[in-house]
Amino acid sequence: MKPIQPTAEQRALPASPHWPAFLQLLPGLLLTAAIATAALTVRNLTGWMALSPLILSIVFGMLIRNLAPVPVAVEPGIGFSLKRILRFGIVLLGLQVTAGQILSLGGAGLAMVALTLVTTFVAIRLVGRAMGVDRSLTDLIAAGTSVCGASAVIAANTVVRGKQEHVAYAIACVTLFGSLSMLVYPLLAAPLGLDARGYGLWTGSTIHEVAQVVAAAFQGGDVA
């Protein structure tokens, strides 16, 4: 019988009882923590609160992966961050939203949000299927577009289990079109005859990232 060969992750660090599992995760955890810290620092230094640290972190990670060789030793920590820490972060993100905030939208606002979400998700899946786009990629784009951008793409991939290039492509799509919407929406409010509340609801229900929504809606005043 042919012996089982160790994986790249197993070869990266010595298999020794003196090298606990946590130390195997440490290089990757330090790298991801450094990227997150850099993203927050850039956002704070620029003073542009609409600049999403999540998007900055993704961009920094892509640059590092493509411009420099990434040591195999960081892979276990990156995987742990993706599968465990990220999911915990998504739970914390949900805990920031209270029932009172949701109910403050009113019946019409809640109905519009629900209708927009379902319609967008179903429409993208149908169009993707008609165009022959990979099912996993279609689902990720649908989740990112209809829910909340890059966060939704990453969270949905824990169920969809798409390829990493599918995740990157879906995030690129929602980032690009969300950023364009952030710039174009303020120009469309007056031609469409939207008041401040209507503009805010339209912006919040159709733009991808929360930070992009805030940036676009701010142009409509505090009510928006």
Rank of each mutant, 00 (worst) to 15 (best):
N44F: 00
G47I: 04
M62E: 10
I154Q: 00
L194H: 15
T119H: 10
Y169E: 03
P76I: 02
L105M: 06
A142E: 01
F60I: 06
M131L: 15
W202P: 03
F60Y: 05
L110H: 08
N44D: 02
G107Y: 12
D134C: 10
P191G: 12
A15Q: 15
V72C: 13
P3Q: 14
A21K: 01
A150C: 01
W19D: 05
A99G: 12
A172C: 10
G109V: 13
Q212F: 00
V223D: 14
L93N: 07
D222H: 14
T120C: 13
G106L: 13
G94W: 06
V72Q: 14
L105K: 02
A68D: 07
L86C: 09
I78T: 14
I85G: 08
A224M: 09
L25K: 00
W202R: 09
R65V: 13
R43C: 02
A15T: 15
Q164A: 13
T37S: 10
E9C: 13
T41V: 12
L92Y: 04
V174M: 12
A216E: 03
E75N: 15
L29M: 07
K83P: 11
A189N: 05
R65E: 13
I124D: 11
I64N: 04
R87A: 03
S104A: 15
A130K: 13
L115H: 05
Y169R: 07
M62S: 12
L67Q: 10
